[in-house]
Design a protein around this nucleic acid. Sequence first.
DNA 1: AGAGGTTACGGGCAGCGTAAGGATC
DNA 2: GATCCTTACGCTGCCCGTAACCTCT
Lengths: 298, 298
Amino acid sequence: MAELRSLEIFYWTASLCSFRKAAERMNTSQPAVSQRIAALEQEFGVTLFERRARSVVLTAKGRDLLTFAERFLRLRTEMMQAVAGPGSVRGVLRLGVSETIVHTWLMRFIARMNEAYPGVAVDIAVDISPNMRDALLNRDLDLAFLVGPITMPSLVNLPLCSVSLAWIAAPHLDLGPGEVSLARLLSHPLITYPKNTNPYVSLREMLAQSNLPPPRLHSNASLSTIVRMAREGIGIGVIPPEVVRQDLEAGSLRIIAPAPALPDISFTATYASAPDCGLAATAARLAAEVAASPEWRQ
Amino acid sequence: MAELRSLEIFYWTASLCSFRKAAERMNTSQPAVSQRIAALEQEFGVTLFERRARSVVLTAKGRDLLTFAERFLRLRTEMMQAVAGPGSVRGVLRLGVSETIVHTWLMRFIARMNEAYPGVAVDIAVDISPNMRDALLNRDLDLAFLVGPITMPSLVNLPLCSVSLAWIAAPHLDLGPGEVSLARLLSHPLITYPKNTNPYVSLREMLAQSNLPPPRLHSNASLSTIVRMAREGIGIGVIPPEVVRQDLEAGSLRIIAPAPALPDISFTATYASAPDCGLAATAARLAAEVAASPEWRQ
DNA sequence: AGAGGTTACGGGCAGCGTAAGGATC
DNA sequence: GATCCTTACGCTGCCCGTAACCTCT
């Protein structure tokens, strides 16, 4: 009588306004969703959805039930966190990560996650923050480590860490003596994050305000490639020094300083405040802990 | 993952401290209970019960889960009342009833119940109030209409109705002219409710205070029999006139008045405030409505 | 020996997936 | 015709009940 799984399927059907999408989300077939919704409707003796041509919409009774379904799912999440041992948490966490995080403390996070929650599989998708924002809203991601916060009522943001941007170049790159002016930096190509990203826009604005001739500005979706290009002297990388810590130590890259300052970039762990966000919230707290630890900065 | 039925079985197992009793309560076999508890323990990765020789007791984690199980069941109850149409409410209501109620408005209540909740079967047990109090506490009854209220934290009382007690006799019974004194009443046997009941005790006290010789006091568990005995002139019934309304109208019985006053008896609908008390609460409200209607008093 | 919980085993049925059907744009 | 939900159908697997077993008093 009113199984929890039926309510969960109902919740996703109502949220996505589609039996098909709910089926995908729940990893089942669309007729199975039809059947469970029909069973709920029969059990309560009410119609939950108006079946319209291109989508389904909740009836009044359906909206009533939705609030209860959400309460049930939240209660289940709370129960799991309260009584289940961490080892018995199972599931998949679809995690979106900024590449900057990949190159700093992601591995530490994954290691901590694996030891604390061995039953959880983490699906990692590396992307730029704006795409991940959309993916979070579409529920294609459970959690993202991105440039934030994203101020929206449906999203929860936990501060993670802040990194600086610096001008990074190969040791042999010729920049002349003394303080390095912006004009002199621009004698080399600049290499940074893709368009639409926070660092790219920051850099672009700084350059625009300088009234200097348009620079050669390469954007690259692969941070590794940016690093490699800088190492080979193709240009100056505009990236956080934290991601090239080893290169700096080994002397294969150097920070150009003193030089014009660039703004910091702050990261957040961001997830949808959905009724089933238990794993995401837990992982976000763990990430905040890892990111706050100074170890990964050396 | 954490089915509602499992939580319900867990709830009863914890409440009754016994797998066996929980199985009886849930209308299933004892191994089925074992299996579901074992499944819960495996799912959460914790031990819920300490299996002791003669009974089982909750562990700390088990107590944690119990609060969640109760919240789940209450939420389900609330959901059913909010979204389910009355016609789709199914189940059995184990109802205990004072015989006085049987002879006044119980039939109206049953009729209203059947039309409002055709899917509900009502199991009626007629008994005296003290027994029903115990049955409520043992969870052998879901709801009782009894002489109340019973002030206990685990019980909910709704006021139903109040009836008077009167001296009822056959028309031809000789009591002499004018006002009827207690002494003259006692020239006949008195017939009333069984020992341990409120009317019996009230009557006994009144007689004790009068310093009159001990009366012939017949107690009878069957109100119908009391009525019949009064009608046949065997004695004077000390019962509410409401239960013999038709006899009074037909003239086959009469109220002896003026005569010493007896205290009123008030009834309540009483049920355990358990997580699954939805049907009991609903029925109690319906009963209060029926009892408040003046129709059954004529 | 008896009460109460666990383990073993066989059968029934709920629920799933595949596939075909129907409605609406 | 494309999309989306419904219906039909065969199958798997869960869950239940019976029965035998174990343990503690």
